[in-house]
Write a protein that binds this DNA or RNA. Structure first.
Length: 468
RNA sequence: UCCUCCUUAGCUCAGUUGGUUAGAGCACAUGACUGUUAAUCAUGGGGUCUUUGGUUCAAGUCCAAAAGGGGGAGCCA
């Protein structure tokens, strides 16, 4: 077979290599469909660079019957052929095959992907093969684009990518149940004389876990480099079984010195709008596919978010609106209670019909590190609420006053001595600062229009499920 | 973890008040068609009805439990 440098399918379909028309080129990829009659066959070939396929035209007279039989849905091919303008409708260019090599066959009796009709639930069971489908190809290309855009957004604004640790010894973050990390022999656990686990014999000589948030370490970065962000995996051992929770997910946590709550809100809104706009400008083909297949209003909803200001509202005002709502809630509403999903959904989807940033929550329902307001009752927390997916961002201005911070720690039962390194930020050169956390997969739910968070991460981790 | 629904061919589903050989579309095989667009048309093969136990002359169908999955809730991002 003639050795020709491979061209990626996106370049052929986007017209980037039109100077090759009339010449022999090489493409490589996986077969999506094969159809035709006894004289001619059409193979739709996809290499993952773009959602669309290149059409390979095969004159059967010049090819071995045996090789054509082995070309089935899912097989991987190397194809040499002449790039020509297409005779048929539906594509601008196609490849008139001259030579075909089969890299790998896909047995039709056992290859689970077919030309038609797979549910997302079925594809979840074959997560190792689902990226070969149009849907998951689109989702994961968008996932990449969003990850890239996150780094670009922060780099352009002079934020530094800060690597907070994955393994942590601080369990005082209060953000959820943690996965323990240990090298102890679980069949023979060393015990102290009191009968407790003897962690002094463990790898770190103390009890450690996977991180539930990089925020506390992020604050150390902000109070030295000025503006930082983290972007990494996060782990929660909660027994959450919903379409919005994973036990392993990715989170972006910016943290900024000298930012007050207002600045924090502005950054959060700019950030989300930037990402959504980036998707609109750079992932058009994939978004159009997802819109056609799953969500007819996807693109208009994304455009709406980019073009409209988020509503900004104090918790107290939200309670007033909910109390006046002409709708019965399962959970009664009153000042001081945390908002339930039904309440958030009412505000975002019914009352305002746009994203809402809620601020100044009662201190009792928020984390200890949030800056206390002068009213003595509320803290400078902010939650960004989105239609369909609920809380997409949670953040706050941080308490920089060490006395107030220690007092809150004691209120909620955290031993200040165990957080000495954290309190040192307030002890030495403390400063006003703020930050927030954005759930990466929840952002992707919004951008792709998918409804189950397990469908926007390649290998979802949920209770009882760690396959692949 | 709680509530609720689902599990029938490789995939997506139908299956009547419990009744004799469990159906369809797609996929697959064979054939037809000189360029198809998830091609079309014809014919054909393909099922321990998730598992276990129970009720009954008789269970895909009724009851119970388990496993897996969906939706809602809580926890949160």
């Amino acid at each position: 077979m003639k050795d020709i440098k491979r061209i990626e399918i996106i370049d052929l379909l986007k017209g980037n290599r039109n100077e090759e028309i009339g010449k022999e080129i090489c493409v490589k990829g996986w077969v999506r469909t094969k159809r035709g009659n006894k004289n001619i066959a059409f193979i739709a070939l996809n290499d993952g660079t773009i959602i669309h396929n290149i059409q390979i035209v095969v004159e059967l007279a010049s090819f071995d019957e045996e090789i054509m039989r082995r070309i089935t849905t899912g097989a991987c091919l190397r194809v040499n052929g002449k790039l020509v303008e297409s005779v048929g409708q539906g594509q601008n260019v196609e490849v008139q095959a001259t030579e075909i090599e089969i890299y790998g066959e896909a047995d039709v009796d056992t290859y689970p992907l077919q030309k038609k009709g797979h549910t997302l639930e079925f594809l979840r069971e074959i997560a190792h093969l689902r990226p070969r489908t149009n849907t998951f190809g689109a989702v994961f290309r968008i996932r990449h684009a969003m990850a890239y855009a996150i780094h670009k957004f922060y780099n352009d604004r002079r934020f530094f990518y800060w690597h907070s640790p994955i393994i942590t010894a601080s369990d005082a973050e209060g953000a959820g149940e943690m996965f323990q990390v240990t090298t102890l022999d679980l069949n023979n656990i060393p015990k102290t004389p009191e009968g407790k686990v003897d962690y002094s014999q463990d790898f770190y000589s103390r009890q450690t876990s996977l991180t539930v948030s990089g925020q506390l370490e992020g604050e150390l970065g902000a109070l030295s480099l000025g503006k930082i962000y983290t972007f990494g995996p996060t782990f929660r051992a909660e027994n959450s079984n919903t379409p919005r929770h994973l036990s392993e997910f990715w989170m972006i946590e910016p943290e900024m010195a000298f930012y007050e709550l207002e600045d924090n809100m502005n950054l959060a809104e700019d950030f989300i709008k930037y990402l959504v706009n980036y998707a609109l400008e750079n992932c058009k083909d994939d978004l159009e596919f997802l819109q056609n297949m799953y969500d007819k209003e996807l693109i208009s909803r994304l455009e709406f978010v980019v073009n409209n200001d988020f509503v900004r509202l104090k918790y107290t005002q939200a309670i007033e609106i909910l109390e006046k709502a002409d709708q019965k809630f399962e959970f009664p509403i009153a000042w001081g209670v945390d908002l339930q999903s039904e309440h958030e959904r009412y505000l975002v989807e019914k009352h305002f019909k746009k994203p809402v940033i809620l601020v100044d929550y009662p201190k009792e329902i928020k984390a200890f590190y949030m800056k206390q307001n002068d009213d003595g009752k509320t803290v400078r927390a902010m939650d960004v609420l989105f239609p369909k997916i609920g809380e997409i961002i949670g953040g706050s201005q941080r308490e920089e006053n060490i006395e107030k911070l220690v007092s809150r720690m004691k209120d909620v039962g955290i031993e200040p001595d165990e957080m000495k390194w954290y309190l040192d930020t307030r002890r030495f050169g403390s400063a006003p600062h703020s930050g927030f956390g954005l759930g990466f997969e929840r952002l992707l739910l919004f951008v792709t229009g998918m409804v189950n968070i397990r469908d926007v991460i390649p290998f979802p981790r949920t209770p009882h499920n760690a396959e692949f």
